[in-house]
Amino acid sequence: MTVTSAPPPVVAAPAAAATGRRRRSAGWLAVVPLLVFVAIAFGIPALAMLNGAFTVKDPATGATSYTTANLTTSLHGAYLTALLGSVKLSAVSACIAMLLGLLLAQAVVVSRFRALREAVLTASGVLANFGGVPLAFAFVATLGNSGVLTRHLGLADAGWTLYSFWGLTLTYLYFLIPLMVLTITPALDGLRSQWREAARNNGATHAQYWRHVALPVLAPSLLGGLVLLFGSAFAAYATAAAMVGSSVPLVTLQIADAISGNVLVGQENVALALSLDMVLVAGLVMAVYLPLQRRSARWLA
Rank of each mutant, 00 (worst) to 15 (best):
L223W: 12
L272Q: 12
L300P: 07
L188S: 02
L170I: 11
T4L: 08
Q208G: 12
G245F: 07
R151N: 14
T64K: 14
F113Q: 13
V36H: 04
A82Y: 00
A60R: 15
I177V: 14
Y289W: 07
A30N: 07
I184E: 02
V288Q: 03
P14E: 09
D277F: 01
T161E: 12
L272Y: 09
T55C: 07
S232E: 11
L250V: 12
L228V: 09
V110F: 05
A69R: 11
H206W: 14
V3C: 06
N269M: 05
G132A: 10
L29T: 12
T73V: 10
I44C: 11
V92P: 01
A219I: 07
L84S: 03
S111G: 13
A242V: 05
D189L: 14
L80Y: 00
T73L: 08
T122D: 11
I259M: 15
L84W: 02
L47Q: 10
L47K: 07
I177N: 00
V263A: 13
S124T: 05
V109P: 01
Q293S: 13
R295A: 15
L229P: 00
T205P: 07
T142K: 05
A198N: 07
W28D: 07
V92A: 06
G85V: 00
P220S: 09
V251F: 01
G154Y: 04
L99C: 05
N51D: 14
A48L: 15
S90E: 01
T73P: 02
G132P: 02
L89T: 04
A233K: 03
V244S: 15
N201A: 13
A39P: 10
R23D: 06
Y79A: 15
L104H: 03
A204T: 01
S246E: 09
T239H: 04
P33I: 02
A240Q: 10
S90H: 00
G52N: 14
S5A: 14
V140S: 12
A138P: 04
S25N: 09
M49S: 11
G283C: 10
S111W: 09
G85W: 01
A94I: 04
A301I: 03
T61D: 05
I40D: 04
A6G: 08
I259T: 14
M286K: 11
T4S: 07
Q267I: 05
G43A: 07
L121N: 05
G245Y: 06
S275E: 01
A97S: 15
W160I: 07
L280V: 15
D58M: 08
L226M: 13
A156K: 14
A287G: 08
T150C: 11
T205W: 04
G20Q: 15
T171V: 15
M49I: 13
L253D: 00
S86Y: 02
S193F: 06
L89H: 00
A91T: 11
A271R: 01
L229F: 00
W28M: 15
V263R: 15
W160R: 02
L218A: 08
P14S: 08
G27V: 04
D277K: 00
V251M: 03
F137W: 10
R294W: 10
N201P: 02
